[in-house]
Nucleic acid binder design. Structure first.
Lengths: 340, 340
DNA sequence: TTGAAAGCGCTACCAA
DNA sequence: TTGGTAGCGCTTTCAA
């Protein structure tokens, strides 16, 4: 089928090979007649330019490298909307996505950049003190972080506004008339990895609770499993007083927490308020649907790609980094306590 | 940091550029001394070969294209283990993975092959009469299917052995002492798309039930949602008699079916048997853990990649297609009816 | 055992 | 408005 080169097209159209190139790139004015003949030849041969040759000559691969946290770590489930959105944004901008697993660590970065496999890199699941950052910052190509480290080293970052998520959660608890909020905290893995958002959420939750005159309590870490959720719920109910509001920031623990409550005969929305931090889809999948602050993986990804392409267009010498925060939204569903 | 070429390495090592190439590829005997000097130069410059140039010269990209069913269709959740395994197998064989979304349809295939973006393609989520197959079969590069169409057109396929999955499920029902099995069937989307495994499972279920002397009933399609599951469960209990065994082949519906049963006070493992077709992870995530026939996404992916690399090594002229089936396993958990 | 050199198929510069 | 041509950085043949 394929196998034709721009020389074949040129020959068939009766023009020079460089003219074919210019017709494709539009980087030079071409007479209507010539363009027509060349286009006809392209169509006839179903010509497609060789990506390797193009990359070699132009120093651009039209590929974005995506480093995803497969392997040991990772909210392996919440990952898909990120990947999907990134792939889709890439295609919209005429880029492809090269998928690399994070277990390669630093080597992935040096390989992607060193071999000119891509024009830019998206790095996910950033730890507070991520060892890949120095390498990323020294990279020849732009790197954008999804997640915020303690020190971004000048790299652009995009993430959910976790402090705002905490504030929204606490505000919902206050509005529902609670006087205590219990944060059913993060997984041990997230804490161990040093995910920065753990602290960002926590501090904001404490502050917001104080400002609203609520007592703030925490159960952490929470093991993400049935038993872990049962234990956490037991503890939360023990320390939370008669009518606690439960904030559940670890999205993968949400279904289990709701289960554990229900098992004990504690009905969310009647006996306690539950506010989860998870995607809207996940919130609607629990029984009953849980009031949630959305994590907006699609928005976060889209913003990251948008910023990345700005960096890529305004080739070089753009103001480097900066932190972009995506606003979460709270949606009240069936687990917010309502006055009878 | 980077930006060095093999010429730089050659100069530093005092050899010709082609010698550097041969040291890297090992395609020519090199004296120990020369190799040592070249390797030292490579290390010193942290030289990495340019992927585009290499692809252009060698006609090999060391990239596998992966077409994933994002977008409208898709068990969007069950996708991750496939992607992860494929990426991991690829790296083990010194390949990278280019991720393409299926919404490009046929264009994705022609682009990947036509532009020489990759050396082979993995196509997921195959419909019974998939319109991409003719294009795939005519492709210049190997294409492997995860899933089995009605006519593979000579393309290699790998998939779970769904007939065997049906047989295992029915055998479990029989062993638990039931005299009726009700299949809570597939989603309307899967049926509409014409997923081949729907029919493969169904036919085997009917046959196995007949052979075991069980009555076979079906509720299909099942809407994958809380309400859909409730309706399906109501219908299943209506037609299923006093002690039905429920087979749930649509993995995404499993948690909802279990929920719906529990809501009605019907306890899986005490009142009915539930056998799900899903990953072991998903089976253990329900309450109670559900007896399941595993879908083995990692095994299926690994087998596909193994076959793909065989095709890629034994360059050209290997016997083309063939269908590989991966055996499912049944794990009895807490939803198999046990005699009191 | 090694070097020189001819491409691979494209982009982009220099002329016309 | 177009053509000729010099690379891009590698692999691989042909000579030595």
């Amino acid at each position: 089928m394929a196998g034709f080169t721009s020389r074949d097209v040129a020959r068939l159209a009766g023009v020079s090979q460089s003219t074919v190139s210019y017709v494709m790139s539009g980087r030079r004015p071409i007479s209507a007649d010539t363009r027509k003949r060349v286009q006809a030849a392209i169509d006839q041969l179903t010509y497609q330019p060789n990506a390797g040759a193009r990359a070699l000559a132009s120093q651009r691969t039209q590929v974005v490298g995506l480093v995803v946290p497969f392997g040991p770590a990772g909210d392996t489930t919440a990952l898909l909307p990120f990947i999907e959105t990134i792939a889709s944004c890439a295609r919209d901008n005429d880029y492809d996505v090269l998928l690399v697993t994070a277990d390669e660590g630093t080597a992935a970065l040096t390989r992607l950049a060193g071999r000119s496999l891509c024009d830019a890199i998206v790095l996910m699941n950033i730890a507070a003190a991520d060892t890949r950052l120095p390498v990323a910052a020294a990279s020849r190509i732009p790197v954008i972080l999804i997640g915020i480290p303690d020190d971004p080293l000048g790299l652009p970052c995009v993430d959910l506004d976790y402090p705002e998520a905490a504030r929204l959660s606490v505000a919902e608890a206050a509005a529902a008339g609670h006087d205590r909020v219990v944060v059913l905290g993060w997984s041990a893995e997230e804490v161990a990895r040093g995910a920065n958002y753990v602290g960002r959420f926590e501090r904001a939750a404490v502050e917001a609770a104080a400002a609203a005159g609520l007592e703030h309590l925490a159960v952490s870490p929470v093991e993400v499993s049935r038993e872990g959720a049962r234990a956490a719920v037991a503890e939360a109910l023990r320390i939370g007083g008669p009518r606690p509001a439960l904030l559940v920031p670890a999205s993968s623990a949400v279904p289990w927490v709701v289960q554990a409550l229900t098992e004990r005969g504690v009905v969310p929305g009647r006996d306690v308020t539950v506010v989860a931090l998870c995607t809207d889809a996940a919130a609607m999948a629990t029984v009953p649907p849980v009031t949630n602050v959305s994590t907006e993986p699609r928005d976060v990804s889209a913003r990251a790609m948008q910023t990345l392409f700005r960096l890529l267009e305004r080739d070089r010498e753009t103001p480097p980094g900066g932190v972009e925060l995506v606003a979460p939204r709270l949606t009240r569903r069936e687990t917010t306590l309502t006055p009878p």
